[in-house]
Simulated assay, not measured.
Amino acid sequence: MIRTATPDDVPLIHAMVRDLAEYEKALDEARATEEQLREALFGERPAAFGHIAQDDDSGEVVGFALWFLNFSTWRGVHGIYLEDLYVRPEARGGGHGKALLRELARICVERGYERLEWSVLDWNEPSINFYKSLGALPQDEWTVYRLTDGALAGLGAAVE
């Protein structure tokens, strides 16, 4: 079962974000707090949206998708950027990840969004194979760049 996240889900989402960061070998970079996630998802002006995967039999939360809107100047419409997709290891293979992606694809179709995009680490073969099995195509010609911490602060403070 897939449902829209609620404020009561924030502690579980936060825990799974940390689990995902640990899996991606970057736990030290996962500094978001529950309060920050609550504000981003449910504050006065939400910046992100979330969906929860629950086990059909037990009702236990087994995964989540956290996403936000992007915009394509080429297509002239919004799309969804999937920031995080995570299914707990013990629940993998049960269709929860596919169900979460299906819900986001449904939202795209319903709202006229023309893209559903995300990034995956190049060493994460199980996820890459899963995404390819759904028909997703890698965008190999694009390289992601990122400014954070000191580099971001330095550029932001630069005076020309």
Rank of each mutant, 00 (worst) to 15 (best):
A91E: 04
F71I: 08
Y145S: 07
V62E: 01
A47P: 00
E103I: 09
L37Q: 00
D122P: 08
A47G: 11
G59A: 11
S127A: 15
A65L: 08
S127F: 01
A32F: 01
G112A: 08
K98Y: 06
W142H: 10
E34A: 10
H96R: 05
R18W: 03
R75T: 13
E39A: 14
T73I: 10
G156P: 03
A21V: 02
L27I: 08
Y131H: 04
D149Q: 14
V62D: 01
L104E: 01
E29T: 11
Y81L: 05
R31M: 04
I80Q: 02
A15C: 07
A40T: 06
Y145I: 06
D84A: 08
F49Y: 12
V109M: 12
S127W: 02
A40K: 14
F49R: 09
T148P: 00
R106S: 07
L85D: 00
N124M: 06
D9V: 09
V61G: 01
D84R: 13
R106H: 14
V144S: 12
V120C: 08
Y86H: 11
V87Y: 03
L101E: 01
Y113F: 15
G43Q: 10
G76K: 10
Y81S: 08
A91T: 04
G76P: 03
P138E: 10
L20V: 02
E125P: 03
D8K: 15
V144Y: 05
T143Y: 12
L27T: 06
G93L: 10
G59Q: 09
V62G: 01
I80E: 02
E39M: 09
V77E: 05
E24D: 12
I13S: 01
G154A: 10
M1V: 10
V17I: 12
F68P: 03
E24H: 11
L12F: 05
D56W: 06
P89H: 12
Q36V: 05
F130H: 02
I107Q: 14
R45P: 01
D122G: 11
E44M: 09
M16I: 04
L101G: 01
T143L: 13
E24T: 07
P138S: 11
Y113P: 02
I52R: 02
R106V: 03
A47D: 04
G59H: 07
I128R: 11
L20W: 01
E35S: 14
G154V: 02
F42P: 00
R102G: 05
E24R: 12
L20H: 03
Q54K: 15
L82F: 07
V109W: 13
L134V: 01
G154Y: 08
G112P: 03
W67S: 04
V17A: 04
A53V: 04
